[in-house]
Design a protein around this nucleic acid. Sequence first.
DNA 1: CCAAAAGTGTTATCGCTACACCCATGA
DNA 2: TCATGGGTGTAGCGATAACACTTTTGG
Lengths: 232, 232
Amino acid sequence: MSQTYIKSYFSHEEKILVAVDCIIFGFDEGELKLLLMKKQIGSQIGKWSLIGSFVKENEDLDEGAKRVLKESTGLDDVFMDQLYCYGDVDRVFGDRVLSITYYALIRLCNHNLESVKEHGAEWVTFHDRPELIFDHNDMVERAIEKIRSKARNHAHGFELLPEKFTIPQVQHFFEEIYQEKFDKRNFRKKILSQGFLIKLDEKDKEGSKKGAFLYSFDKLKFKEFKNRKMIF
Amino acid sequence: MSQTYIKSYFSHEEKILVAVDCIIFGFDEGELKLLLMKKQIGSQIGKWSLIGSFVKENEDLDEGAKRVLKESTGLDDVFMDQLYCYGDVDRVFGDRVLSITYYALIRLCNHNLESVKEHGAEWVTFHDRPELIFDHNDMVERAIEKIRSKARNHAHGFELLPEKFTIPQVQHFFEEIYQEKFDKRNFRKKILSQGFLIKLDEKDKEGSKKGAFLYSFDKLKFKEFKNRKMIF
DNA sequence: CCAAAAGTGTTATCGCTACACCCATGA
DNA sequence: TCATGGGTGTAGCGATAACACTTTTGG
């Protein structure tokens, strides 16, 4: 009863179409990738767009984002964070649609690339990505900035590397995120000075003839590092 | 014609109630304040809440936030930024309501305190704020963190001071934002080292018997300062 | 033997932290 | 004259940026 009673309070208010759009970056030793698809329906048919669709009335926003990503690409177990809510009346043609954006950066080899292809989605090289529909370009800009700031401030990104990895691999990762080159001496010094990488006795000989020492990631030390808050 | 045609694409999708909630901080030499009001209707009647209401189908989200703030408090010319979209199905009782939050920090003396009171809203001391309804406490936490990070990284906050101000005033401002004390020598050094404060020949004798030198804010120098990006 | 990538050290500068005393004045 | 808040300096440390050569080894 009280349920029905309460519901009546807002019955005269206007409802709005709500969508989620997912900005998914992928990385795997090589170049940074971005997950896109070509519009199958609507006024923008054939143009490139992010992965997105409408949110149901009875699902949490976060759930909606997961569902849409899964339905459109088959991707599962992707931990997305909310980015921004795009809400101008005329942001898309024809209808008033609110879009809440979610973003993530995943390790490609942990996910099913086949199913993405079967669903008609594509991993494109971030650096050479095509123009996108509506305000989706803006969404991508905002998302990459968030990723960068996360990588900078919280040293995120080690989840993106194999269990054992080399310093040049880490550097390559950061260079892809920033689309910029760094000095390897300074980079090595900085990364090692944080104190959460453990040098192993093995070498990885994939990347070069000489071979590079492998390191592993000390989660405990990393937590200590993160908790030092950097105050004014 | 094409308008009608396009509109039909999404006609079967579910629409959702969308609200905005405004987290408005106020400052004016004294203590940091937060703008609240007591619920006049609904299941939470009489409890403290942020300023919020529903978004119309034909208004931009940003416009909606401005309108709601104006209607509920009479406040005008408040430049709010978007904070986060709260979207769990059961975040409020009875109805499914999406809430997009907006936040701002304003200088109290630039705004009409009377009209706020007449509208039934209140400025409460941030440090002693009451419990709020629903997820509004969470919203406030998130907002103050954003304000802090803005003040830290972009030296925002000089808009909040008079044209001419003293160093102790600036320090007081930061101490209110962080709810924490700082060493005055280090604070002074840091703030002055940025190079965008100009020392004047006048003293302000309000705050103390000795009087403190007044400074003004060099917008040009500040822009240079902001543009230096702090890369990895 | 050589191309290609890994690895290494120093210097100068800068910003941060911690810390204790004198100054000017109005009441 | 004294209580109040304004104002100052330094030493040590850690982080940053710029910079060039040696090592290893598979082909």
